[in-house]
Amino acid sequence: MLRVTDLHAFYGRAHILHGVSLEANAGEVVALLGRNGAGKTTAMKAIMGLVPPARGEVAFAGARIDRLPPYRIARMGLGYVPEERRIFTELSVMENLEVGRQAARRGAPTWNADRLFKLFPNLGRMRERPGGRMSGGEQQMLTIARTLMGNPKCVLLDEPSEGLAPIIVHEMAESIRTLKGEGLSVLLCEQNLRFCEAIADRAYIIEKGQIRFGGTMADLAANASLREQYLSV
C-alpha cells in the first residue's frame, strides 16, 4: 500500500531524516515509534508532501508520490491526521467534515457523517458546535473523522494519544481497531508503547532520523534492550 525508500528530508537547514525506509501493507496497522525529535512527525509530513523530501522515494498504491503537492496526494487516497489536530476552530463539526469530503473511492471504505457519528458517538451530539469549543479528546476524534471523509485507503495518524486522558486513549484505541476492521491501512506515529501494543501489527523504531528496528509487535515485546535503548519507557 505505502512504501517509503531511503527518504531524506530537511526542516529549515536541519537534516532531519537520514534515509528512512518502511512499508505498510493493505489492511495493516503499522506503528512508527520513537522519542520526541526522532523524526516521526517529519517522516509523516514528508510522506504527505508537507515537507518536501530531499531524496528518496515514496510510493502509494503503486504510484510515485514524492514530488506531488499535498492535495494531489490526499486525492489519491492517502489521509493525514496531524499531531496538533488542526481543527478549524471557527467551523462547526459538520463544516469541518465538509472540508474533508472527497468523492467515494474504489477499494476504500466510504464514509459519511452518519457513519462517522456511529464511530464517534460524541461528535454526533455536537454537530453544530464550533471546533474551538470542543475538548481535546473530541477534537482528536473530529480530526480523524474529518480525514476519513476523504474516503482514504490509508491514513497517517500522528500521535493520536498525545495529551489525552487515559480513559480517552482507551476509546481511541477501540476506534482505530474498528478502522482496521473496515480494511483501512494505518501508519501511526507514537511515543506511547502501551497504546501501540494494543492496536498495531508491526512496528518500526526511528531514532535520529533513521530506522533502527522493524518487526512485529511480538518481536519488539521480546526485546527489552531495544525498548530501553530507543524508547526509554
Binding site: 522519542r35 520526541n36 525529535g37 511515543q191 524508547l231 526509554s232 519507557v233
Partner: peptide, 8 residues
C-alpha cells in the same frame, strides 16, 4: 515537560 521524551 510537554513535548519532551519520557526519560527527559
Amino acid at each position: 515537560t510537554a513535548g519532551m521524551a519520557p526519560r527527559e
